[in-house]
Structure formats: C-alpha cells, structure tokens
Design a protein around this nucleic acid. Structure first.
Lengths: 209, 209
DNA sequence: TAGATTGTTAATCGATTAACAATC
DNA sequence: TAGATTGTTAATCGATTAACAATC
C-alpha cells in the first residue's frame, strides 16, 4: 500500500466526516455532494473534495459521493474496520467514566482491562470489566497482545508508567494526564488535556468578538 | 483595552506555555529564555517569541523572560485571574468524573452545580456539590449568574439543552456530547469529542511512519 | 562596555479556497 | 446529450521560521 504523507490538518478532520456520514446513513440518505455536506458541516465544499482526494477518488462526477461507501472507506482509513482492544491505566473517576462510555464501541474500540495501583479498587467491575491490580499489567499486555492504553492516572505517575508500558509492548497512548510524554518517536500519543481545553474556552469567552 | 485579533493557533498554545511556566515556577526557576523554553517544549524559540509578542513585550533583551511575571501575564490573558464558576449538565460517569477532577481549581475553575434529569441521582454529592434535578436549572443559573456549562449528557439531549441554557444566560459551553452545537455566534463552544480523538489515535497508529 | 536575547521584519512553508476542465 | 459535480491545478491566505537590528 503506497501512501503519500497526509497533512495533520486533514487527519484531524476525518473523524468529523465520519460522524456526519454516519448520521446521514442513519437517516437513509444514500448520496451526498460536497456542496451538500459543506452546508451541513460548515466547511467549504472545496476543502471536502481536497481532503477526500488525498485517499482516492471516492466520488463520481455528476453524482457526488455514495454515503455508505464513503462512510466505510473513511472507517477503513481510520482503522475502524478492525477491533481495537485497549486498556485503561487508572481506575479513578475518569478511568471509570471512559470504561463506561459506550460511544467507542461502534467504532471498534473495546476496553478489555482496567488497572490501578490501589488494591481497594480491585474487584470493582465496570461494564463487565474487572479492575485489576497494576502488578498484573505486564503479563496481561503480553498475553492479550494489547497495543493501546488510555492513561487516566495522576500526572506524577504518568511518565514512568508510559515508559514501562512501551517496554511491555504498548504502541499508542490516549493520554489524559496533564503532561507531555517523552517517548520514542514511533510511539503514538494523543493528548486529551482537559484543563487546557477549559483554558482555551476561558480565553475565548473573555475575549469574545 | 484595544486588542488586535489573535490567531487561533496561538491561542491554543497559550495553555501549554502556562503549564510549562507553572512547572518552572514550582522548580524555583526565575528566568527563562525563549531558547531555554524552546528546548523543553519542543517548539522553536522563534515561535515562542512571536506568540508572546502578540500580547506585549514580556521579555527583556539580554535577560529573557521572568518566569513568575510571564506566568501571571498568561494567566490574565487566559482569564484565570478570576474565579470561573461553572455547572455540569449530566451527572453520569463523565459528569461525576469532571466534578471530581481537581486540576481545574488552581486555574480558577470551580464546579458550583451538577444537574441531571434522573431523579435517582439527585442528592448524590460529588466533592461537596449536590446533584440537583434539572428543573431547578433555570433558577440556579439566574440566581448565581452562571456563564459556563459543561455538557456531559446524551447526544440526543444536547442540542435542545444547549439552546435552553443560552436563553437562561449561559455564554460558553464545554461540550462532551458528540454533536456540533448550532448556537448564536456570540456563544463560545469548546468541544471535547472523545470518540474523535480516539479515531485520530487509531489513524496515527495504523499509518505509522 | 560586551554579550545575550528580545522584538520585529522578511522569507518560507503549508493549508485553504477558487476555478475549471474532465467526466459521469 | 445536457446538467451536475468531481478531481485537480493555480491562486490566495495564514502560520511558521529565519534573520538581524534594537536594546537591556
């Protein structure tokens, strides 16, 4: 599969296309033009065509795009056509909230383990997944061949834990700890910095046009 | 206060500067050059100087930036020098997790109310804040002059709720529902789309360099 | 003063939009 | 075929980086 480098700006927009196409699909819309999608999504039709064309010609002149086909294609591009098992490190409120969140599953993401340092949380079950003590982590990752981990633990513990996880086989982090993980460049990190997003909100509110 | 328009790219970087400066402050570092900060943050020194200069000359030639001063100035720019009370709409797992999250408070954000449609959650207390029934929402907002709301409720309910909230005085949303809110343009929306961020992670993992 | 480092202009790079020929 | 709409090139716009004079 020969691929040209896609710009980060484009990649960040793909999940949003995917969401809108999913909604169209639910509403039994079977075709959509870039113009039509443009109006719903509040982006330019030109940008939509440019973005999609990075991955191939999914449309047809005079017709537009087949919704179901495009939805599936973007799903494949995003890697959602396979099951993506992941573990959650830190069974506090946020970790439990993620484990409970059902929205991921239709995109192929599945929580298969939750781990915590605190023995008092062990045995607690969240959506059928039992909280385990952190000592079992290495074996679990290796046995189940886990590649993705969500980090919902205190900032102090995150960097060392991330490093250990990498040595045990984790390749991608969904990081909720307010710290920038310094990891080998082949390791993928997606940050969810809650406090920072709230600060951006604060700025925009304070400096409203 | 006459202000020129600041680019969104710059604004999104401010909280990260703020975080690094806070850490320097904790470590009793009292001055830092753009070069020094550049090395820690993995951005160019040139970008740091450009970014900061949008808001005024905080540095001094031959010296660099005073950490404490710059930290405070960015705090002011972000609107963190005042208390920012906010309410959480939806007392499910995610709402409770946010209410419990302590990291916001040092930035002036404070959860003052949690609301839910489900009467069975009413009376539950999260960090000293009681969950209230949604019927009390309008009065609460008006009485306490609340301007910011976090939306942690089902996608289906979010758009209508957001509209009501705006009519009751809410000016800014921290939106966790997987939907784009269509609101008057003066209303500020900061989206936290968990599923989309996980999809970006999936893409980057699948198409790793 | 001499050295260091900012503030700021100019150059480069990347992303978005416009336009239109290709084609279904 | 005629109309619609894509795929794609060219033009514009915005953001980043480089360079250096100003100045502490």
């Amino acid at each position: 599969m020969l691929e040209k480098e896609i710009s980060p700006a484009v990649i960040k927009r793909l999940p949003r296309y995917y969401r809108y196409l999913g909604e169209l699909l639910e509403n039994h819309v079977d075709r959509i033009s870039s113009q039509g999608l443009s109006e719903r999504m509040q982006v330019t039709a030109s940008q939509i065509r440019q973005d999609l064309n990075n991955f191939g010609g999914f449309g047809q002149q005079g017709y537009g795009y087949n919704v179901e086909n495009l939805y599936k294609e973007i799903g494949k591009i995003l890697g959602l056509d396979q099951v993506n098992p992941f573990i959650i490190i830190g069974a506090g409120n946020l970790g439990q909230a993620l484990a409970n969140y059902q929205d991921f599953e239709k995109s192929g993401f599945q929580v298969v383990g939750i781990f915590d340092v605190n023995p008092r949380l062990v045995g607690l079950t969240v959506r059928g997944v039992e909280v385990r003590i952190i000592d079992e982590l290495e074996d679990f990752i290796k046995e189940h061949n886990i590649k993705i981990a969500a980090l919902t633990l205190p900032k102090m513990m995150a960097p060392q834990m991330a490093q250990d996880l990498v040595s045990w086989g984790i390749e991608a982090f969904w990081n909720f700890a307010p710290v920038d993980l310094q990891l080998p460049k082949e390791v993928v990190v997606e940050n969810m910095h809650l406090a920072e997003s709230l600060m951006t909100l604060s700025y925009n509110r304070t400096h409203k046009v």
